[in-house]
């Protein structure tokens, strides 16, 4: 077994806005082991980005609040109790982040080389010359041609895909053990997306880095992740290995997501499946299951109480009332997947 690297337990995060307290994340737990890729999937507003920011301590008071009951441990250390100095040592060195939009995540008035070297010099006691050498290597690693020349250029001289490579190089600069990629390909062209994903996958395997991949695109997940957590309305509704999630979804939301992906094997004129309705307002999260109002299998109980997790295997669990024995007798099915009609 691989060594466990990150464990998030009962993470709760709220934002205080003028309209009230927005409960962005409501009790999220997951684990990531070394060298493993975990994908967090969900639509916008489901709390996935907020979760990932919390792992790097980027939730900023006074508006953002990580609730005291939450716990995040990295290599056995509770990071939520970190001092400022410990945070700074951890960020960039142990854990690094790749942001969604490469057009805005680089400082427009600083040369690319300096932006990468800055990270290296911060965490390593080496000379500028060595740092420069390392920067060139990094740029080669992320397949940027003519790295020597590129060092002295400004971000505006790079295309979107190239900038994302630079951002990846910054993240890799200190060989972090954990890398969080927040929708790293969403803002890019489809052809570039594939290249960037390939690059991330190669790096992950080469460097044995753990990766948390945040995305709303199941296609991205399929090729990259080992495990998937599906988030909805601030909670993880289903968790499992890629095969489990793709082949045996056990939550109506996961099932609906999978059906919403257009597929070539479908008959030509088959209508595209959609999920009706919109996610709930997190200022007043619903009392019962967050997905109840959009769920076609919704029962009375779903509107009244939040379902607990049902363990389906060592790696697979889902939070849905359909797994309750009484539901199965009421509707007469053995396995929940029968209900969802997956082939």
């Amino acid at each position: 077994m691989t060594k466990q690297l990150l464990e998030v337990n009962n993470l709760r995060i709220s934002f205080h806005t003028y309209a009230g307290e927005v409960q962005a994340v409501r009790g999220v737990s997951f684990k990531v082991s070394e060298g493993e890729c975990m994908a967090i999937v969900g639509e916008s507003g489901s709390g996935k980005t907020v979760t990932s920011k919390a792992v790097l301590g980027l939730i900023e008071p006074p508006s953002g609040e990580v609730k005291a009951t939450s716990s995040i441990t990295f290599a056995g250390q509770e990071i939520l109790n970190f001092s400022d100095r410990q945070w700074r040592n951890y960020r960039g060195k142990d854990a690094a982040m790749i942001f969604q939009d490469p057009m805005t995540s680089l400082n427009p008035t600083m040369k690319i080389g300096r932006q990468i070297m800055e990270n290296i010099l911060l965490h390593n006691k080496i000379s500028r010359q060595e740092a420069r050498q390392r920067t060139v290597e990094l740029l080669q690693m992320v397949n940027i041609p003519n790295p020597e020349e590129r060092l002295t250029q400004y971000p505006y001289e790079f295309s979107g895909g190239m900038r994302q490579r630079v951002v990846i190089a910054i993240a890799l600069a200190c060989k972090p053990r954990l890398m969080i990629a927040d929708e790293p390909t969403t803002a890019l062209d489809v052809t570039i997306q594939a290249q960037i994903l390939q690059l991330l996958r190669n790096i992950q395997q080469q460097e044995h880095t753990a990766v948390i991949m945040i995305t709303h695109d199941l296609g991205v997940v399929a090729g990259m992740a080992d495990f998937i957590s599906v988030m909805y309305a601030g909670r993880i509704v289903e968790q499992g290995s890629v095969i489990e999630i793709f082949n045996h979804p056990q939550h109506p939301y996961t099932s609906a997501l999978l059906k919403a992906v257009p597929s070539l094997s479908q008959p030509n004129k088959a209508p595209l499946q959609i999920i009706p309705g919109t996610p709930p307002d997190m200022i007043a999260p619903p009392q019962g299951c967050g997905f109840a109002s959009r769920c076609q299998y919704c029962m009375k109980i779903c509107q009244q109480r939040d379902p607990a997790y049902t363990r389906l295997s060592d790696t697979h669990q889902a939070a849905c009332w359909l797994h309750e024995a009484q539901a199965r007798t009421a509707f007469g099915y053995q396995d929940v997947s029968e209900v969802f009609n997956h082939a």
């Binding site: 980027l58 700074r88 960039g92 805005t104 427009p108 800055e118 910054i170």
Partner: peptide
Amino acid sequence: NDYILLARSKGLS
């Protein structure tokens, strides 16, 4: 700006 977030995630003070 996002690049400030990136700078923070580098561990800069």
